[in-house]
């Protein structure tokens, strides 16, 4: 990042390459919409380029980048509230695209297994969707991105203690939402 700040454009390309999939994954799990997640990813790198002078070396680069991503995701959520029908249509079309592709090959021997996997993914997706924005971002950065509490606290602009309780609350909510699936296999 410091090379990029000094004007090294190749360093910027390397940063984009290194982080684009992670940014896309975070935005997708947060927004649960492929198109919006890709828009946020593009916008995040655009803003990263334009505001490179504001980055301070003492902070971790990924925290800074995911702070931008978090703000963009929150802006999109607000925009969805203003245009609820539009965002609903987007989500529906996305799942309309994906569902048949995943379910069409029912004659294959792994069909039951695939069905179960799809069911699990859908359950996880819905459970994560039911969390508040802070809880959702915290659990995404913690579980899927394995970020430290300190880094998550920078992204959410909260204290480490607050992040701990957000995560505790988020996992408790997820366990309640998925209670039917979480009982040990041997007990039924």
């Amino acid at each position: 990042m410091q090379k990029f700040q000094a004007g090294d454009e190749a360093a910027f390309e390397q940063l984009v390459e290194a982080y684009k999939r992670r940014v896309l994954a975070v935005a997708y799990r947060f927004l649960q919409n492929q198109q919006e997640a890709e828009d946020v990813t593009q916008e995040a790198f655009f803003r990263m380029f334009r505001s490179r002078d504001k980055y301070r070396a003492e902070g971790k680069f990924s925290s800074w980048l995911f702070t931008i991503v978090n703000r963009l995701c929150l802006n999109l959520l607000r925009s969805r509230k203003r245009h609820p029908q539009e965002s609903l249509r987007l989500e529906e079309s996305e799942y309309a695209d994906q569902a048949p592709r995943q379910w069409e090959d029912k004659s294959a021997p792994q069909a039951a297994e695939m069905l179960e996997t799809e069911e699990t993914r859908e359950m996880v997706r819905r459970a994560v969707q039911g969390l508040s924005p802070d809880e959702r971002m915290a659990i995404i950065l913690d579980h899927w991105e394995s970020m430290s509490l300190e880094m998550i606290s920078q992204v959410l602009n909260k204290s480490v203690g607050a992040v701990k309780s957000i995560l505790f609350r988020a996992r408790a909510k997820l366990r309640v939402k998925m209670a039917a699936y979480l009982s040990p296999k041997d007990s039924g």
């Binding site: 684009k20 999939r21 896309l24 994954a25 997708y28 799990r29 492929q34 198109q35 997640a37 890709e38 996997t117 699990t120 993914r121 359950m123 996880v124 997706r125 994560v128 659990i139 579980h143 899927w144 996992r171 997820l174 366990r175 998925m178 699936y181 979480l182 040990p184």
Partner: peptide
Amino acid sequence: KRLSEFLNEWPAPEPS
């Protein structure tokens, strides 16, 4: 443990 296993079942998307 089961919760973490379930969360791992949700993969990152492929870019379009």
